[in-house]
Design a protein around this nucleic acid. Structure first.
Lengths: 347, 347
DNA sequence: CGCCGCACGGAAATCGATTGCACGGCACGC
DNA sequence: GCGTGCCGTGCAATCGATTTCCGTGCGGCG
């Protein structure tokens, strides 16, 4: 069946005909710096422009065995943490001549698998993986098949190339900040412990709790099933309902912290007077919340950009050694944290 | 130069060899329902599975002259209005076997042009355009070349396929809501009048102002240079600095409204007691603001999904007639609007 | 018993670009 | 004056799949 041609696409043969040369000459004139009479090249270039010739990326991909396309797996584009990361990756990709195919995995294994299949079938040259839950098995398989990929904001046993922040350290710093403000009972709404970020931040928090001699009450630790506002809200309500409620809450990410903020407000308590709140990631909205959220600033854009750069370098062929980039993250202290009032902390 | 093969990709020839048939037979067995002995098909399928054969989408695209890929142009993925639209489009695309290439144009003409070139070079089958500023000239050109595309949340003279909401009507409804609450001086922070959404919403607002006999003071109308929070903040400050300031502000979108919210707070005024605020779009965060924002609810996910469906139908070959889908948008009344206090309105 | 048609599957063209190889011509050196 | 080498370009193979066109063999029907 003949498909309706929306546009009478020009092929290299058309240009060749117009310039009265062989197709191969057209290719050479337009691509490499092969030896070519200047006049010939000029003629070809003119013909190409006149015909509005755009070489077919598909045909070229087939021949060159590379598509100049990167795949990017993200759990959820609607989570404000990711757009800046994506933008960073996109900008770098574009400037290097790569296109980016974005995929929302929703952290659902089947969707991940589907997308992985689709992307590899489409022969993307490499993968940026920000999907936090993707199992180590999948990662290991990619590794085994020597498929180029970079992990963003997560790590995994099998990964050679990662771009992250020091979650442990920053989480400890966040809790340390609360301790310095005099808080003794600090609640932690941990992220899913199936994710490296959730895990590491919880470890950091625990570490700091020990180091500063804070209350080690197990009831102060609760694991969210997702990095979402809803979960933050739910978990915060549990913490607030405790006989001796925490005077501060450290959420594993900003969305969780925002949920906590709402829960606190709904409990007719004030932030930060009654309960201080700290988040993680510093999404754009964090600063604009009421009150502005104290949180760990993560250089999101730079993270995406760095990951893309790393991946593209890897694709360049230079055998990159293991490379685990750890970007600096620093605590941004805002108005959602304050000195612990002695009145708080009792039921 | 031979590139390092990350994976020993299986080709149709490998499968053919393994199944002891001709490559064409493999293709038939795996694709169409051509007449094939059941036993042969079984043998091929088994061989394919055993070899983990995945047909090259690149080769197939070349032959079929279609890539099963859609391009999507969005001004800014970090604007929370767009992610749900993208998700809608992505879900539909995926379920129809299409991939989606996402591009942030930043509403910058050069970037749009660049992406347009890249996308067409890559032979995407069609385009979803949510980039609000793209000039009519570009649109017309696409139309002339019969390149399939659908406009999302915007219109243009040359466009056959669009998915929008009735901006005029909804804007009028928003202002009508304020009038019903007794507001006489309603300020409008209009979006860029170079965009159809900005234009239509301003028209709707003006219409309602006339219809309800509200103050037609030109000073109450101000045009933002972008649909951003910063611009909303800046413009709101101008409005609040007026001798007789408005008792209500209608922002052309939620980000502008959020900026206004901040400006009002910074001016030591209260929302909604001193100034009511209405937005447009109902981004997810609108409901969670303090106070929750009254705004026009736009079915974002459905908008993206509908656009993708429309585009894919168009690609299906059925000659779709002009089709301008207008999705229903309704005012979501929340706590950022209240009756006008008689005290307000004077300097 | 012979012919027709159909089911099956192989051969080869095709999609559009890249690239190693070869060839014609010209310049230069011996 | 002829061989050598290089420059510029054409030729043809190639990438991996799809699809049209045939050839073969078998069965049914007249």
């Amino acid at each position: 069946m003949r498909r309706a041609a929306h546009q009478p696409r020009r092929t290299i043969a058309d240009v060749a005909r117009a310039a009265r040369v062989h197709p191969s000459t057209v290719s050479r004139a337009l691509n490499d710096g092969a030896v070519l009479r200047d006049e010939t090249r000029k003629r070809v270039v003119r013909a190409a422009r006149r015909l509005d010739y755009r070489p077919s990326a598909v045909a070229r991909s087939l021949r060159l065995q590379r598509t100049l396309t990167l795949g990017m797996l993200v759990p959820d584009i609607a989570n404000p943490f990711f757009p800046p990361i994506i933008r960073g990756a996109e900008d770098v990709a574009l400037s290097c001549g790569y296109a980016l195919v974005l995929c929302n995995t929703e952290d659902v294994p089947e969707r991940e698998a589907t997308y992985l299949r689709v992307l590899r079938q489409r022969q993307v040259d490499g993968l940026l993986i920000a999907s936090s839950r993707m199992s180590d098995a999948v990662i290991t398989r990619l590794r085994r098949e020597r498929f180029p990929f970079v992990l963003v904001n997560r790590s995994a046993r099998g990964a050679e190339l990662t771009v992250t922040v020091d979650n442990r350290r920053s989480a400890a710093e966040a809790v340390g900040h609360l301790a310095a403000l005099g808080h003794r009972r600090v609640g932690h709404i941990a992220g899913p412990q199936s994710t490296t970020t959730g895990l590491e931040r919880a470890e950091g928090a625990r570490l700091a709790i020990g180091r500063h001699g804070l209350a080690a009450d197990a009831a102060l630790w609760i694991e969210a099933t997702a990095f979402s506002e809803e979960e933050g809200y739910r978990c915060a309500r549990v913490l607030l309902a405790l006989g001796r409620r925490p005077t501060a809450i450290f959420g594993a990410n900003d969305l969780i912290a925002v949920g906590a903020l709402r829960a606190i407000r709904d409990a007719r308590l004030r932030v930060p007077e009654d309960v201080s709140v700290v988040g993680f990631n510093d999404i754009r909205q964090a600063e604009l919340l009421e009150p502005p959220l104290t949180t760990v600033h993560v250089p999101q854009y730079e993270m995406g950009a760095a990951a893309a750069r790393l991946l593209i370098a890897r694709l360049g062929g230079d055998p990159i050694p293991e490379s685990h980039l750890v970007l600096p993250a620093t605590l941004a202290v805002r108005a959602s944290t304050a000195r612990a009032s002695s009145a708080a902390g009792v039921a």
